[in-house]
Structures are given as C-alpha cells and as structure tokens.
Amino acid sequence: MASPEVAMLPVSTDVLVVGAGPTGLATALTLARRGIEVTVLDQLAAPPTTSRAAVVHAYTLEVLDRIGAAAPLVAQGMRSPRFTVRDRDRVLLTVPFHELPSRFPYALLISQSVTEAVLTAQLAAHGVRVRRPSRLTGLSTTGGGVLARVDGAELRARYVVGADGLHSTVRQAAGIGFTGPRDEESFVLADVRVDSALPGDEVALFLARSGPLIWAPLPGGVVRLVAAVASAPPDPAAAYLQALLDERGPARRPDRVTEVLWGSRFRVHHLIADTFRAGSVLLAGDAGHVHSPAGGQGMNLGICDAVALGTAVADVLDGGPESLLDDYSDGQRPMAEDVLSFAAGLTRLATVPPAHRPARDVLIRLLGALPPARRKVALRLSGLSHRQPASG
C-alpha cells in the first residue's frame, strides 16, 4: 500500500529534489527555509541505518549553520581536535584542527545516518516530508521547466535537482556525461568495537603497502574502519577485520576487534559530470562527482553543493537572474575536481612501493614539522580552503 505522501503527490512544485541523502535533504532544507515549494522523493522505503560517511568537517559545519542544522548535529557528534597520518606505530603527520580559523575548530565524528535524521527533522519542521518509496521514471523539458514522471503520475517542476547518487536517473535523463578514469577501487567498511591504545577522539589514516586504512571513532565507543582492498567480502567478519588491523594498524599495541556491529563493501570510481546544469536540471553530490573516501570529503562536498545550489535556485525564484545557476555549476565543478584530485593523491600516497616508503615517510614528517605546511593541510582537509572571503 502506498504511503500517504506518495498518494498525495502534487501536480506541480517549484523544485523537485530526487534523492533524500544528506545532499538532497540539505538542498530541500535550504529551499524550504526560503519559502520555496519543494518536493523530495526517494526510492527507498526507509532511510538506511548504515552509511559510509562518518566525518563532518569545519567548513561543512559553517555551511550547515547557514540553514540552522549545525547546532543539532554538533549536539549529537563527537569533536575531534586532530587528524593523524601514520605508518604502523609511527605518527608521520599531525593535523591540528583545534587551530582552525572557524567557529567549529574540529572535525565532527558522527554517522551519516544521524546526519540524515537531523536534516530530515529540520525539514519536517518546515512542513516538508520525504515521499518514499517513490521513483522517478522520466524527465522531459517543457516551456515552464520540467515534466517529471513519478510512479506513473506526472509532476511539473520549475527545477529538478538530481541528488540521487552514482547511478543518477536525473543525470542520465538529462543526457549529462559522467566521465573519468576507468579504474575503480574496492573498499571494505565496518563499525566495530575494539580494544585499542589509539586516542579515542582522533581520526587516523594508516598508510600501508596494500592500501590505506581509515580508523575513525564514533560516539558510543564505536570505531568506523574503512580500507581499500583488492577484493572485499560482502559481509566482513571479525577475523577479516582483525587481519586488516594486524596488517595495517598499530604493531606494538595491536587493536583487538571485540564486536562487529555491521560491515559492508563498496566500489568507487573517480568520475565527474560534464556539467552540473542542463537547463532546468541541476546536479549535486554523488550525482555530480564520486571519488575515494580518503580524506572524508564525499558527503561534505555534497552538502556544500546542496546549500550553494539551494541558495542559487531560491535567488532565481525570488527574481534573480538565471545566470546564478550557471555560477553554481561553474563554481562547484572546479571544487569537485580539486577534491577528486586530493582524494586520489592520498590513495597514491598510501600505496607507494616498499622501496619508496622510507623517503615518503621522511617527506611527510618534514611537512609536519613546518607550521605553515601543517596549517595548509588542516585548511585543505577541513574544507576551509574553499571558503570564500565574504563568508568568513
């Protein structure tokens, strides 16, 4: 039986947002706060309870603060004052987030599912609920915008936002190319409980010959593990995850996995859309760009896309020039290219051949000894390097 939200699908809306992950929700919230009529749909019957992203960076929190969503997130997350790059027991680089020039001088450690729940609640407070399960099956351009086909019904929208991920129906229907290197990476991820001597408030990136391992603590004594692997099992067990930690993690005082809460695998391409705008159709988040999780930038970039896009669309609907939408595409796409390059660089750094690892480690430690270099890395990881002077 269809949900009441699907049964009451409107005939028309100002903006149709397809996809109710963090990007779609943040786009819709930005619009709703401006009084724009927005309809949000998602093909899943319920929000996922597991998710890949676990870090919200300082610049993203500044962006979320513009739409009233930072404070409730901070209240539920854990603040991390630093990020370390390690080679087994050696700390090669410490990135000081506590010195960031921001109202949020930390990385917020919080599960993506909690981030989505907070945004969903904020959106509901503005009278907007996600229509699910609901599927977009086609788009066609009309004189006044776009005619969308949703579950066999027609919905007219001034604008359509594709926030529907890697296999975006919106992007494909709009005929927007999605290009990049043909290679892809395989990752395993899991939320676990561990006996560990590592700091409980610090994200660590372990560089290993076989690939990087990200160790990220979450509220409630949980640790998120993400590792690039040659071939990941669909349901990683404790023994598999223990072997990863034994191979890549601390050696003198090894971590011991005591419980696996959940685990999964995913594959990542490095792809970017040819444009983020085709007429009345706009893209944000993974519909426009996908890349390695190294550096924890994916969801963060998607949320920044969302607020920039929502603001531009609201400005146009309030009488501003259509060129604002081109400004969005022209501004966010280079940012996405930069993040893709950065994530790929971190992966390459982790997987240098054994003969070159001593030189790599020395260079990273030299970098960490220079305060200006540490500050530059902190600004880059936190996203503050993308902050426009006017928003500071």
Rank of each mutant, 00 (worst) to 15 (best):
A157K: 03
L225E: 03
L317I: 03
H386M: 15
Y159C: 08
D255E: 08
L155M: 10
A390N: 06
G383P: 09
L379D: 00
D42N: 05
S292H: 03
P217M: 04
A7F: 11
A359E: 09
L205W: 02
E116H: 01
S231Y: 09
A390D: 13
V128P: 03
V229C: 01
I36G: 02
I303A: 02
V128T: 13
A71T: 10
V118T: 07
L189H: 11
L100T: 04
Q297C: 12
L136F: 11
L381S: 02
R171D: 08
R267A: 15
D201I: 12
G162M: 08
A238Q: 14
R90K: 09
R265Q: 13
P250I: 04
R267L: 11
T13D: 10
V118L: 02
L44C: 07
L147C: 14
R182P: 12
P199R: 02
G368M: 08
G162Y: 05
W262M: 05
S292V: 04
G310S: 07
S113L: 00
A287N: 10
P22T: 04
L244P: 02
A355V: 13
V194R: 03
Q332E: 13
A314N: 02
P212S: 00
T142S: 14
L147R: 13
G138R: 05
A230P: 06
P47I: 08
S196L: 01
T30V: 12
S329V: 04
L309S: 04
G138I: 12
L325Y: 07
D201L: 15
A355Q: 06
L301T: 13
R357M: 12
P234F: 00
R129N: 11
V194F: 02
H270G: 07
V223I: 15
G295V: 08
A125P: 09
L370H: 02
T94Q: 10
V192S: 01
G19D: 02
G21S: 07
V192Q: 00
S113Q: 08
A173P: 07
D151A: 14
V11C: 13
R277K: 09
I36P: 03
L346F: 06
A278H: 14
L166E: 12
E37W: 06
P101R: 00
R131V: 11
A163S: 03
F276Y: 15
E154Q: 14
S134G: 11
V362P: 01
R34E: 13
I214Y: 08
V95P: 08
L379H: 01
A153E: 13
G279D: 14
E37N: 15
K376Q: 10
P372Q: 01
T311Y: 01
G345W: 03
R135E: 13
H386E: 12
A197V: 14
I272N: 09
V161C: 12
L41S: 05
H98K: 12
G296W: 11
S186L: 05
D191H: 10
L155K: 00
R357P: 10
L225D: 03
V161W: 06
S385E: 07
A2Y: 01
E62C: 10
G144I: 12
T141Q: 09
D87G: 04
L241T: 06
V40L: 14
I364R: 00
V11M: 11
V226S: 01
